[in-house]
């Protein structure tokens, strides 16, 4: 099969619906196992950090949430680009599905960051470079969601959000770097906390587990949302009616 036939097959919502139905357990099961297992491992079996005590354990939720939220934005921008360039409708549906999941993960990262901040820095919010960057990512997500809802026409909404997502993706490195620069300018390195690079390997393994689990979780949620979107957009077609009445698969 040539690349293009493959590409077009992928672009067919019906084929994707059936394919994703088969794929979903392969994401759902690892997501649940890795996340729950990773949390249990990280919370109960990893020795406490000698500086932060037990409070560091929140990284098993915080780090995956922020990393996957970032990855989700890139996924959204890529889907948007595919939609704009090849006019693939499925890509628009994927893009629309990623946005709320990514925004929720970003919010989770902010929330866990704040909870972590209290025992570490003695305050819920610090204008630290990393937290500020996550906050800006959250704003970018909110912008996409707001734009999405402002359009009445679905196709125009998808294209507009695709443009905005691409613009955002191009800007994210610049924004992150400028925030980094801003922070280093104003804050003589007085606050230093354990980063991933200096982490002990016994702490790292559960982190890798929850990180992988979180990626699977993202994939799972995106597939769920996309399948929903497919059913809604193709609601007038025969095959969707068959699916809904239980006649087909």
């Amino acid at each position: 099969m040539s690349f293009w036939t493959y590409f077009h097959k992928w672009g067919s919502p019906r084929w994707f619906y059936q394919f994703s139905g088969r794929l979903m357990p392969w994401l759902a099961i690892p997501a649940v196992v890795l996340l729950l297992g990773g949390f249990a491992w990280g919370l109960a079996f990893v020795p406490p950090d000698f500086k932060q005590g037990n409070s560091f354990r929140i990284i098993y939720l915080h780090v995956p949430a922020s990393a996957v939220a970032m990855g989700a934005y890139m996924l959204m921008a890529t889907a948007g680009a595919i939609h704009l360039i090849w006019r693939m409708k499925l890509a628009a549906m994927v893009m629309k599905s990623v946005a709320p999941v990514g925004a929720a993960l970003t919010f989770l990262a902010l929330l866990t960051g704040a909870v972590w901040g209290k025992p570490t820095w003695g305050t819920y919010w610090v204008w630290d470079a990393r937290i500020t960057s996550v906050l800006i990512l959250f704003f970018l997500y909110l912008g996409i969601l707001a734009l999405q809802q402002a359009f009445e026409n679905q196709e125009a909404a998808a294209k507009a959000c695709a443009v905005l997502a691409i613009v955002g993706a191009v800007n994210i490195p610049i924004i992150y770097w400028s925030v980094e620069w801003w922070y280093s300018l104003h804050q003589p390195a007085s606050i230093k906390f354990v980063g991933e690079s200096t982490i002990h390997s016994s702490m790292l393994r559960p982190l890798i587990a929850t990180l992988t689990g979180m990626y699977c979780f993202l994939g799972w949620m995106v597939l769920l949302n996309t399948r929903n979107e497919i059913l809604y957009r193709e609601r007038n077609t025969r095959w969707v009616k068959d699916v809904l009445t239980g006649a087909g698969s």
Binding site: F139, G143, L147, L164, V179
Partner: peptide
């Protein structure tokens, strides 16, 4: 909402 985050740098 759209533009302000992009203005930050």
């Amino acid at each position: 909402l759209i533009v302000l985050p992009l203005y930050i740098p």
